[in-house]
Nucleic acid binder design. Sequence first.
DNA 1: AACAATTTTGTAATTATTACAAAAGAGTAA
DNA 2: TTACTCTTTTGTAATAATTACAAAATTGTT
Lengths: 139, 139
Amino acid sequence: MKSFKKMLVDKGISPSMQRIKILEYLSKNRIHPTADDVYRALVKEIPTLSKTTVYNTLKAFTNKGILTALSVFENEVRYEYEQQPHIHFKCLKCGRIYDINEKYDYLNDKYIAGHKVIEHHVNLKGICKNCLEKEKEDE
Amino acid sequence: MKSFKKMLVDKGISPSMQRIKILEYLSKNRIHPTADDVYRALVKEIPTLSKTTVYNTLKAFTNKGILTALSVFENEVRYEYEQQPHIHFKCLKCGRIYDINEKYDYLNDKYIAGHKVIEHHVNLKGICKNCLEKEKEDE
DNA sequence: AACAATTTTGTAATTATTACAAAAGAGTAA
DNA sequence: TTACTCTTTTGTAATAATTACAAAATTGTT
């Protein structure tokens, strides 16, 4: 597996310690964290870490296509490690965001009503499996 | 056509002047406005209007299903007058949001990976027809 | 070691939104 | 009309996410 360091170099980003740690965190914690989540997790290891660094780094990674920024119905941005396009499901009860790897017809690079599509996001909202089961138990 | 006043009464919302004007604005301006857009447009007519009223009213209307709240890739909420489910397209160049009435397989009320779907949003990002044409002209 | 370029840090500012209590308005019964 | 209650609106202050920006630290190079 390609090291995070090498990955950054390949993308033309100089691999500082902070940047490597942030990338590593996103790769190992597939929980769609906010910038603040990333900061709170890493400041334990890097006590001098600054939020501005986190914001700058997440933005830079997103621009380079290393991460994807999500707006799943909330007014805070969440990030995820780049992977195959997939569906996001947000539970209205517990707030968790699930990845759903169902097939759908990607419109990326296609034209629709004359508009050129670059990104195609599918966001679902509802009650997740866990919460549905809990509801049943409570009956 | 049902009056805005009657529409509110039917939904169990007492039809104050502010509420009627806000609903009327959303109905007549299908531009996916933010709360601030609504405020700035209406404060001309209603100089005493408060932003809190706008926020409260938009939230109440959304809860009653009169409006839909969108998070189309930005960290600000936009609102639209309730209508058939449709696709949203956000232009990366001009920032405009277009409604696209293409057919797609609505997952509402269905189950996917055991999760119950209540809302299904499709958000596209790209370059809109207008901006594509302008790009061509500039060549 | 000295220098230049890059990166990180910390603080202040900005923006969207919410909390909350006082003021205003509307409806109703005496 | 007046008194009373309930609802809605208003205005201000607080919160939360994000950005701006300049100083400090780090890195690589001569």
